[in-house]
């Protein structure tokens, strides 16, 4: 809409470093190519990945907030691979690219259910992507988290197991 190429201030509606940094070990020409390729795939994207949700946040709550940027075409909750319960992320699909960009600008980084949520442009939902990829079924980040997060199942699961094991062993040692 605006004739201005933006130069004096950064934009918030760019894809995050996540896509660019995906699978990247050493920066070489192929990486740059790949980066351009993903950026191309995100052109016209209407889907957002939304992260850092509480496990208790409902579809309705997400709908209420995200529809402020435009009508929502589809909402896919991220689920624990084994329990099929929400595991803290979702995909929000709009009808237009502009709505998705506006959402990055206006909603990403604000609070939902009293947590700061993260929104990222996404190439589009595909069957299977709604499940957590962590070892125990949830998101990977919830495996090793050392802080207690009541909205996301307490301690990281792997971390928690280790803690409990240590506790037990400590008891046995006595």
């Amino acid at each position: 809409m605006s004739l201005l190429p933006i130069k004096t201030v950064d934009r918030l509606d760019r894809p995050s470093a996540y896509y660019a940094g995906k699978n990247k070990r050493r920066r070489d020409d192929r990486d740059i190519e790949r980066e351009e390729e993903t950026n191309k795939r995100l052109e016209g994207a209407t889907t957002l990945y939304v992260g850092n949700l509480s496990f208790y946040t409902t579809e309705e709550q997400i709908h209420e907030l995200f529809s402020k940027c435009g009508e929502i075409k589809r909402l896919v909750m991220g689920l624990d691979r084994f329990n099929k319960t929400p595991c803290g992320f979702c995909f929000v699909e709009y009808y237009t690219h502009q709505d998705a960009l506006d959402c990055l600008k206006y909603v990403g980084g604000t609070k939902l259910d009293e947590r700061i949520i993260r929104a990222d442009l996404d190439t589009g939902f595909e069957e299977g992507r709604q499940y957590g990829r962590g070892k125990s079924g949830g998101q990977v980040r919830d495996e090793y988290r050392e802080e207690y997060d009541p909205g996301r199942g307490g301690y990281g699961r792997a971390y928690d197991e280790q803690r409990q094991r240590e506790d037990e062993e400590y008891g046995q040692g006595r």
């Binding site: 004096t8 201030v9 950064d10 918030l12 470093a17 996540y18």
Partner: peptide, 14 residues
């Protein structure tokens, strides 16, 4: 999250 902080603080290009 870290991502946001980084982006937001960079309000001044360059």
């Amino acid at each position: 999250m870290a991502d946001y902080e980084r982006r937001n603080n960079g309000y001044r290009g360059g």
